[in-house]
Amino acid sequence: MAKQDNAVDLVGLLAAEKQDLAASWVREVQESLGRRVGAAELDRELRELYEALVEALRQGAQDVHAEQMSEVRALLTELSRNRARQGFSPSETAISVFALKTVLEPALRDGSADTVRAYLQLGRILDGLGLFTIETYTQTRDELITAQAEQLLELSTPVVRLWDGVIAVPLVGTLDSARTQVVMEKLLQALVDTGSEQAIIDITGVPAVDTQVAQHLLKTIVAARLMGAECTVSGISPQIAQTIVALGIEFDGIVTKASLADALKLALRRSGVDMVAHAGVQR
């Protein structure tokens, strides 16, 4: 149990010069982070962490995954989550842990061999904690990215009702198979929910159409037809029309219109709505 005794030595040091060490730790981290974290907040965070770390070491914790470290881990998780959300870089996050090593260095100057050994052991523990911080940081970032991707997917595929029995999907941005799947499902569900027999897919906002995108569109249209609705594709720009012909894509039996207005006119005529312009109205 020699090791543990060494650790206890260091614990003694950590605990005895608590105020000084914690204060210089806070200063060190504060310098590296600049002014982006409030001084009071940082002070509170690090002091809590310090207390928890000393307590864990006193109980004989040997590495990051020890049971005694659970409090430390919880605090670190919160810290790195906050850093990740506030947009700090991974090194800026990890420095919070590694700065403690720098702070402890002066204790080695007149230290015995035991103190050095204890310092090295603590160094190992701190390295582990640093890695843990990075891991949590990355995890949080990944979660953020996933959540944003989902939001984007939801945002980018609205189904709007243009008239009784006429719905439209304005597509904006590049189409890939995942998005088309969502569009397809949403469109078909909207057909059922609204009881619409006419659907318009508007691709004004789609920058390019290739064979794959065309394939996806065709699938959606055929599926809508299977359910008893008619689909029109609108918003085909001159360039896209040229691409479609050049690629040899055949939109067999699918009505295409240049603008959404034309498509709406057609859909209304198909559903038996007549539009009449009154001569007396000034425009």
Binding site: M184, E185, L188, Q189, L191, V192, G195, S196, E197, K219, V222, A223, A224, R225, L226, M227, G228, A229
Partner: peptide, 23 residues
């Protein structure tokens, strides 16, 4: 026809040409 069923049929390559459909 349900949306999920329609998608399945399209994925299977069955477009049921010549069959009329209604909601």
């Amino acid at each position: 026809m349900r949306p999920a069923v329609a998608i399945t049929l399209v994925e299977l390559g069955l477009s049921l040409g010549g069959v009329s459909t209604a909601l």
